[in-house]
Write a protein that binds this DNA or RNA. Structure first.
Lengths: 159, 159
DNA sequence: TTACTTGCAAAGCATTTGCAAGCGG
DNA sequence: CCGCTTGCAAATGCTTTGCAAGTAA
């Protein structure tokens, strides 16, 4: 398990390798992403968090940085249909395993780290001549604990 | 197989049952949706098509109608991450089977009408105490025919 | 009639962009 | 020093909303 500093460092090396510069703002944004690895933050949320350590950063910079990280495959831009883009780190153990459980009761988003779709992808190749490069799987439903005692109060409680 | 008129009629009855009125605009919108069942139209696209037979309709009305149909579960609002909401009819044979193949070469969206996830949903119930009410599955990749001869020219060619 | 609907224009949001100033390498 | 980056504000693009006029039942 790498420390956050190591992870940020690795990302920085990737930036440099691709000809981009390592700036205060980019490092700060990366740090926030790694510190909140499981949270599916929106650009606005990242902005708020980065601002704490870096009050001068602009929202546009955060957007630009997230877009850049998305292009470098350091994060994945995802859209749960609530009108804001969210950003997931694509670290080694998340690769190609972006399954989410969305609880309609508490609004929580849980990530499942299994690759369940290998078999299906092979079928698509054979039956449709379609070569899969990525997939996304989401389940909407309710946790038993949420069905019983309503836990609407706390958003993102489940994680 | 029902005719489009029958399908629109059924939807109308649903509207009435829920206390909504059947208007020229709503019927026209429904007709367009049924006529383009496989096309994943955006609100703007629906608007354009409805305008042909109904030049006086306003874009806001189309948005409101689509939103209403979404609430009535007559259509499903989906988001492929391209910045526009798209709308899929939830007819009998589509129910609970919203799997999509997104071709990164030609931009085509193909629908798969199989329910592959029953088994996984049972696992989620057992292992996570999560009761699935809906799911979404998308594969991004390339069709063999697109990999060979580039078919970028025509958008939505595959369907 | 009466409440639901509509069209229009204005507003609302998330996101993007132009540009001059700032900074990394 | 050069060119990539930034912050700000303005612009954009999709979607929603306020409101007076229109219309289904």
């Amino acid at each position: 398990m790498l420390s956050i500093l190591d992870e940020v460092g690795a990302a920085n090396r990737q930036l440099i390798a691709m000809g981009y510069k390592v700036t205060r703002q980019r490092e700060a944004t990366l740090r926030i992403l790694f510190e909140n690895e499981t949270d599916h933050l929106s650009a606005e949320e990242v902005f708020m968090l980065v601002k704490k350590s870096n009050p001068d950063i602009g929202l546009a910079t955060v957007y630009r940085t997230l877009e850049l990280l998305n292009e470098l495959d350091i994060v994945e831009k995802i859209n749960f249909g609530d009108g804001v883009a969210r950003f997931d780190l694509r670290s080694k153990d998340h690769e190609h395993m972006h399954h989410h459980l969305l609880c309609s009761e508490c609004g929580g988003v849980k990530e499942i780290k299994d690759d369940w779709l290998q078999e299906l992808e092979e079928r698509l190749e054979k039956e449709f001549g379609f070569t899969v490069s990525d997939h996304r799987l989401e389940f909407t439903g309710i946790y038993k604990k949420c069905a019983n005692k309503s836990c609407k109060k706390e958003r993102k409680a489940v994680s």
